[in-house]
Amino acid sequence: MHENILFKRIGTISSPYHTLSDMPIQPIGARDTEGRITLLPKLAEGLSDLQGFSHLILLYHFHNSQGYSLSVTPFLDTQKRGLFATRAPRRPNSIGLSVVELLRVEGTELVIKGIDVLNGTPLLDIKPYVPAFDSPAGPVRTGWLESSAHAAQQHRSDARFTNGDTNRTR
């Protein structure tokens, strides 16, 4: 088993968010926010047939995040929760995920809507969103977020998960 895994940037996500204070905490808070993905030119062929999809799953690197705590006070709560029961950006592997709308493909650039990441975020992968594959069947439980998830639309990020966070353990 390999302890370290190497990922390579496949592109860069551009957004209007240059600081955490303006950035939404989830894509729902950025529903109308347009952004761009600039793919590395050597990967352009991989964009073939993507225009037929309305939504994409983006996997990216939380490039301004270092270290993590296994218990965190998440944005939509006031008590500590287990890290893996949250979407906190400071994680053992700094990987983020967002589902965005694909507006159009322009060469090696994708124009997207609903982006909630900092400008300059390194992109790791793109996958088409397919409801038949990605939407679970039956009832869905959302744990401690059941009563507060609706607040994500208005909530903005803050410094609690930055490198200067005093709760950092690693």
Rank of each mutant, 00 (worst) to 15 (best):
V140F: 14
H61K: 03
L76I: 02
H63Q: 03
D22E: 12
I37P: 00
G164I: 11
W144F: 13
S69N: 09
I25P: 00
N4G: 14
R160N: 04
I10N: 04
K127N: 03
A85Y: 05
D125R: 04
I126P: 00
L43D: 01
S54E: 06
N119T: 15
E3T: 14
H150Q: 10
T38A: 10
T142D: 13
P92W: 09
L118H: 02
D116K: 06
I95M: 09
N64L: 07
S148C: 13
Y68E: 03
D125Y: 01
D158Y: 11
Q66N: 05
S157Q: 10
S48H: 07
G67S: 00
G52D: 06
N93H: 10
S157G: 11
T33K: 03
A85H: 07
E146H: 09
L103M: 05
T121P: 00
H155K: 15
Q154Y: 07
V140C: 15
P16V: 12
T38M: 08
F53A: 02
G82T: 03
R81K: 09
D134F: 15
A149D: 15
G46P: 01
L124Q: 09
S21E: 13
R81D: 04
E3K: 13
A152Q: 08
A149N: 14
G114Q: 01
S98I: 04
G46T: 08
N163I: 14
T19G: 04
K113S: 12
M1F: 14
R87M: 02
S148A: 15
L102T: 06
L97N: 03
I57T: 01
Y17G: 08
A159G: 07
L83R: 02
S71G: 04
G96E: 01
P27S: 11
H18L: 11
K8G: 12
P16C: 11
G96L: 00
G29A: 08
R104Y: 11
R31Y: 09
D125V: 00
I95W: 06
F161S: 08
I13E: 02
E106Q: 10
I112L: 01
G138A: 08
G67C: 01
Y17W: 12
V117Y: 09
P41H: 07
G107A: 06
S94F: 07
P41R: 06
E3C: 12
F75Q: 04
G164L: 13
F161K: 09
I10T: 02
G35P: 00
L102S: 05
V130M: 13
F7L: 14
T86R: 05
Y60N: 00
P139L: 15
R87F: 07
E106G: 02
G46L: 07
T169I: 12
N4S: 14
N4E: 13
G52L: 04
L6G: 12
S157H: 12
T78N: 04
P136K: 14
S94W: 07
L145S: 08
Y17F: 14
I13A: 06
H63V: 03
R141Y: 14
R36M: 09
